[in-house]
């Protein structure tokens, strides 16, 4: 290429490309959200349709399901690029790999994390979550699902070269998700009880910035390792 892309152009280019790919494979990318809805549906079936109980544990259920759905969709961040070799192109590009990784993670979040924002309040309603908890639920999803994508990206980058990466990926990633789960679920829980949630939200924001600044580097290092 003669006309070299600037860094921001490359970022936008990669983001656009990934979103376009996602648009073409709509069915595949709808799976995680479907999974999310299904898992939540299972809980009333298992526990029984007791409204008080369901509304009490709704925040926990929604967040565990969100965690699992995020994990299920992780593999798609780098899988197709790894298979068709475009990952090596990315690694060879003159731009810092961490920034390009960030573009891919952003695209992944827009495709898989953002739809949760629409589905979650709906399911919250079905579980009988109190009305005043819904804004907090949306806020936590908005803040915390990017963290899930960012941390998950490290795990995927480590396992993308493996044939049986799926199980190992969950073993690697789920323990690292624990802090997000704790604070996000407790924020919604507190909101449902009518308490202040600013402490939890601040913590989640701190996680977001921390993972935003550290995770791309680790992911880039892991990708170099996997591609070698």
């Amino acid at each position: 290429m003669n006309n070299r892309l600037s860094l921001s152009q490359a970022f936008v280019f990669l983001l656009r490309r990934d979103l376009l790919v996602a648009l073409r494979n709509r069915a595949e990318y709808a799976m995680p959200i479907l999974f999310f809805v299904l898992v939540i549906t299972l809980f009333p079936l298992a526990i029984g349709p007791v409204p008080e109980l369901l509304s009490r544990i709704a925040p926990g259920i929604v967040w565990v399901a969100a965690l699992l759905a995020a994990m299920l969709s992780l593999d798609s961040i780098f899988r197709s690029d790894f298979d068709d070799g475009s990952l090596e192109q990315i690694l060879l590009s003159p731009h810092p790999v961490a920034v390009l990784v960030l573009a891919k993670v952003c695209a992944h979040w827009l495709v898989t994390g953002l739809p949760l924002l629409i589905a979650a309040p709906l399911l919250g309603q079905m579980l009988g979550m109190p009305q005043q908890a819904l804004p907090t639920l949306l806020l936590t999803i908005l803040i915390a699902t990017p963290v899930l994508s960012l941390i998950g990206a490290i795990g995927v980058a480590l396992t993308v070269g493996l044939r049986k990466g799926g199980i190992i990926l969950s073993l690697l990633v789920l323990p690292l998700y624990v802090p997000v789960l704790i604070f996000a679920a407790s924020a919604v829980d507190n909101a449902a009880a009518g308490f202040d949630v600013s402490a939890q939200l601040t913590m989640l924001l701190a996680f977001l910035f921390l993972s935003l600044s550290l995770s791309p580097w680790a992911t880039a290092a892991a990708l170099r390792m996997s591609a070698s």
């Binding site: 490290i154 480590l158 690697l172 624990v178 802090p179 390792m225």
Partner: peptide, 21 residues
């Protein structure tokens, strides 16, 4: 190298996990 990356990432996370728990 994979394990090294994971160990470092984990080490950053362990205090956070401990604190959250």
């Amino acid at each position: 190298r994979a394990v090294a990356i994971l160990a470092i990432v984990g080490a950053v996370n362990v205090p956070i996990i401990h604190f959250s728990v």
